[in-house]
Design a protein around this nucleic acid. Structure first.
Lengths: 239, 239
DNA sequence: CGCGCAATTGAGTCGACTCAACGTTGGTGG
DNA sequence: CCACCAACGTTGAGTCGACTCAATTGCGCG
């Protein structure tokens, strides 16, 4: 049940058996959500953090005019709100983009971990830091790349992140986002999002249908995206 | 020397005398940089983290075509690269936007803190989480707000953050960024940055000259920005 | 079969870009 | 003391990317 979390964390450093057992013990109660439901509401003060066991979720904020900006996409093995453990108040919501299966982890247990297990604490801290790195990569893509390049970057990132948790199938992966939802990721209108996607298709870099993306030319897609996976910290070393 | 850091951290929770002393002990060697120098180079693996004692610094990434995107602005009291403690490799550079005074903190000392001082560890973790929140606020501003609103949001944020570390003077604060550097924050061209600034001036929301910004109408500036400081976690509570 | 949602296409408008020129200011050296 | 230079800021003009409004197509399901 926490297999994806272990796959995630063990990309960065080795875990001891004890640490794996602690994670198994504190990640408990399961909950399921339908696509479109909020896993966590903006403004709430959850007493637990949610580990996404299966499905896709997104962090988002709404503007006064009701526009939505998605600030992160979460996949299996991600804590969607580990930061709430210390931030306390959610400054954004988390919505299920597909049916989601999550496991909850009480903040009191997380606090125990920080009191007794320094290395595991650092690994959880690292997990939040990597999501910070992802935020920075998104900011660069939003500010200084073409929209085509931005989309390419997001697809490269998802392909790598899904690969870590064994959710890819050759060059394909499941991505249950509508074009309208993807527009909320890139900060585009729905109409223009469609045109950007068509550019990647026309260039034969990807195919995308039935919620399935297939990368047709990884080399060129990476070039278009200027994708460098350094920011994902995918190296096993003492942390 | 670490006064600004204490002002920063104590916005979120109380520190014990012992914790304050530990910080004083581990934040050591001082270094100075001229405006334009890199405090930390992209791709480097620093063995220490840098606390900005005075001045302004920015994290940035460069694109293949040599464009620059600034992903964070740092002010006195900020650790500019605390995340390198666990991420190990810098996926971006940090540049001095003004003459900077920094104090270094060895990663071995930080590791000691995580082994022996859980609460202080959580406070440092929190510091990195707040910078993640700021990243999300920037993503929303970049994706779903007008450029005028985006600039207003950044100025609101800087005013609040500088106020915490006592770097404001009434409604004014020093901001040593050229319009070209600000353009790299917003992801704009220099020419358009100028026009956006002039809009805020024309609306009598701010004045900006001689590297000094004065907020002329805080209420309306906040409205234009849709600024809600929740994301800065400025409340003292147990963490 | 028809409804509803997602995807697609077209047309016109506006925001942001580039290229280019000009103004302003502070520092430096003759 | 003034001339000059460099960096920054400002303005104008023309182009292109992204937006909105609107209509149409494709598809899964009751």
């Amino acid at each position: 049940m926490i297999d994806s979390l272990l796959l995630n964390l063990e990309q960065h450093d080795v875990l001891t058996d004890e640490e794996r057992n602690i994670l198994r013990r504190i990640v408990g109660r399961e909950r399921r959500f339908l696509a479109g439901e909020d896993l966590v509401a903006e403004g709430s003060r959850p007493g637990y953090s949610s580990l996404l066991v299966d499905g896709f979720a997104a962090r988002y904020k709404l503007t006064a005019e009701g526009m939505r900006q998605i600030t992160a996409i979460h996949v299996a093995g991600d804590f969607v709100d580990l930061h709430a453990f210390l931030l306390k108040t959610m400054d954004h919501g988390v919505v299920a983009l597909s049916p989601c299966h999550v496991s909850l982890c009480d903040h009191s247990d997380l606090k125990q971990v920080t009191e007794q297990h320094p290395h595991l604490t650092r690994m959880l801290w690292l997990d939040t830091l990597i999501h910070g790195s992802i935020h920075r990569a998104w900011i660069v893509a939003m500010g200084r790349r073409s929209k085509v390049s931005h989309l390419a970057h997001i697809l490269c990132e998802l392909y790598v992140r899904l690969g870590v948790v064994r959710r890819t199938n050759g060059w394909s992966f499941h991505l249950p986002l509508s074009q309208g939802e993807m527009a909320d990721v890139l900060g585009l209108s729905l109409v223009h999002m469609n045109r950007v996607i068509q550019t990647l298709r026309r260039e034969r870099l990807i195919s995308w249908s039935n919620q399935t993306i297939t990368i047709l030319d990884w080399e060129r897609l990476q070039e278009v995206a200027e994708f460098d996976p350094t920011y994902l910290s995918l190296s096993v070393e003492p942390r």
